[in-house]
Design a protein around this nucleic acid. Structure first.
Lengths: 187, 187
DNA sequence: ATACGCATGTAATCTGTTACATGATTGG
DNA sequence: CCAATCATGTAACAGATTACATGCGTAT
């Protein structure tokens, strides 16, 4: 129940078409709330029906034509209401941890290589976040909006820092496991 | 596509009934792959149909009667295959981060209180993990299975450490935001 | 004219959530 | 006998994923 609010947030920041939203989800919002273009189009339809957003006036109608939306006052209110309401953190669902637990009973074949690959992925993501931080949040600016957005980016950086650290630790442990030189075994 | 493998892992560790699995998901496996009893029963049915698990022999049939399952060789093979195959990390979906981004445009009302509540939740979870670590992983044991399971628990501990650290940082930032004494405002 | 990329959308399927229904067992 | 609890399950729905369909605009 958060996708509509992710979209409302994006549209309040800047009115956009479906594809533009998709691009922005790929770049920035999707770092903590991912969505595909199908989800976005479907949800835009719903939000329009519910009167929370509307098509920007001065438009072409047809299919294959760009169609931009803006947030209506009702949408802004709904977003404010949702933001203010308490919500429990959603339970974690992580495949790598599950695989390690499975590896404890069926063997570690293949897992070491993928740990290395994940480390690489997380290192890249971390580097990307740090670039964004340098570019968008140079020292000594502090509007309230900037601070909040910086805080969110900080979470991303800290989270990737956690993953890279843990993955390195995991790889070190793996190196000490019996028979983990080349990578495979099944008990 | 991981719930069946979570269940297979649990059943390889120890044959169980649906409700016993549900309990174990609440306690241990669910820390990184949560599931409700409905999901579990549905999936047990599928796994049995596919010939990956079977009912423990020596059974009563009827509804309301306990029904335990064990993993068949085909199930163990499928689990090993899945564990060894590379998988991309699933994209992050975090509501609190989304809310902060929304708060940057619609105001921070209510968010501060919930940050505090989340900090409390994550501190409790961290304490629970640490207790498990003390109880189940005293210094100086090192079977391969133990090491892998400890590694998974370590991820939980490090992750909760990240959250509590970040939430404290966020609360400190909030304290400096204009008008954030009592908690509410809308721009 | 056709092929490519942009843009919007439909459909089918799978996964997860919520609410409820039913039988068995046990303690009062 | 009754209520509570254990245990299994159904049904309906909501959310997410995957594959595909269609139309427009532009460059070759």
């Amino acid at each position: 129940m958060s996708l509509p609010h992710a979209i409302l947030t994006a549209l309040v920041e800047k009115p956009s078409s479906g594809l533009e939203l998709t691009r922005r989800f790929d770049r920035s919002i999707g770092y903590f709330w991912s969505a595909t273009h199908q989800q976005i189009y479907r949800e835009l339809g719903k939000l329009e029906t519910e009167g929370l957003i509307r098509e920007l006036p001065g438009r072409q109608p047809a299919r294959g034509q760009k169609k931009s939306y803006e947030v209506l006052p009702a949408g802004r209110e709904e977003l404010a209401r949702w933001t203010a309401a308490p919500q429990d953190p959603r339970p974690l669902r992580d495949t790598m941890l599950l695989r390690l637990r499975a590896a404890a009973v069926v063997g570690t074949a293949g897992v070491g290589d993928d740990l290395r690959r994940h480390l690489d992925l997380h290192e890249r993501q971390l580097a990307e976040y740090r670039e964004i931080e340098e570019r968008d949040f140079p020292p000594g600016r502090d509007g309230a909006e900037d601070r909040l957005r910086h805080l969110v980016l900080r979470a991303g950086i800290d989270l990737e820092t956690f993953w890279t650290g843990w993955l390195r630790h995991a790889l070190a442990e793996f190196a000490e496991l019996p028979g983990e030189g080349a990578g495979a075994q099944n008990r």
